[in-house]
Nucleic acid binder design. Structure first.
Lengths: 163, 163
DNA sequence: ACGGACATGTAATAAGTTACATGATTAT
DNA sequence: ATAATCATGTAACTTATTACATGTCCGT
């Protein structure tokens, strides 16, 4: 959130939440409620400063100097450990208890959703390269593309054991 | 948890927790506290049955018939939506605010941890194939290998923009 | 029989989700 | 001017993590 504020702020809670969706939603989830709670938190710690009440009792938040410092501290600390939860792998792990045709359906469904994602990332990456966007932003999208490519490969190989 | 119990139960909370670590920990996190809370839940719903108190007030849980049914229901419903949170991508997204040499260090660190993981999955997959384990279990490990391979490719490409 | 390690469980806190409420805007 | 939609925020609930407590076992 501090990073986003540094790029797009000042902005109100709802705006920050939707921006997060657009800007980092591909690899980080964040609900509106979380944003509001955390904004209060950040305000209490002096990392953001809230402007006066606007429409619907909204307030615009902007990054303070100490917030900017906290952001750089976070950035410098490097990435946190990954928490991996891949529901499809749970299903697959226990898939021997599933009728083959049902499994087939589930895989088809999975495949089509991920194919769509893969195409999306391919297009997006091409667009960003075209537009000469920030190389680091491009890198995050490229990761998405590579990830989806790996999923596709996996599904292909999986077809050998689920004919 | 129901799936695990169907394969390894009866077992106490701690045992279930460590088994989860070993059996599905590569793609699903589960803390001890969660296990205990959920066991109570499952007991209340009649999906598991607890034996008498053993040492350290532990109890062995076993799957009931309705628990088995619930498990199959879960399995049949297919995988839940993925929640993706990849901390490294957040770092990369904002990496233009980081001194290049610091970024280099973070990437090196990341690379070495993931290289280790990749090697681990490669070995494990080979072992499981050798041992002619359940093809679905092998598939989950193969996913891990493909994922780590994608990470490696990504890091290679990334080296072009972070020399 | 004592000290240290391990096994097992619980409590307190933090993070995340879902459902709800209501004030503004827009189209008819 | 009204109804429908959208924007914005909040409350209630669920899930997840961290820190703690204590009982059991094992080597000396």
């Amino acid at each position: 959130m501090l990073g986003l504020l540094s790029q797009i702020g000042p902005i109100n809670g709802n705006g920050l939440s939707s921006s997060a969706d657009v800007l980092i939603g591909d690899y980080w989830t964040l609900t509106r409620s979380q944003v509001y709670r955390e904004l209060q938190n950040l305000e209490r710690r002096g990392f953001v400063h809230a402007g006066p009440l606007g429409p619907r009792s909204s307030r615009e938040f902007s990054l303070t100097e100490s917030g900017r410092a906290a952001f750089h501290e976070w950035l410098d600390a490097g990435p946190a450990g990954e928490v991996i939860r891949f529901p499809m792998l749970l299903t697959i792990r226990f898939a021997s208890g599933l009728p083959p045709e049902r499994l087939r359906d589930l895989l088809d469904d999975f495949e089509s959703r991920h194919r769509a994602k893969r195409e999306f990332y391919e297009q997006l990456e091409a667009d960003l390269v075209d537009a000469q966007s920030d190389p680091f932003e491009i890198a995050t999208v490229r990761f998405g593309r590579l990830f989806e490519a790996a999923v596709a490969t996996w599904l292909d190989e999986l077809a050998n054991i689920v004919p």
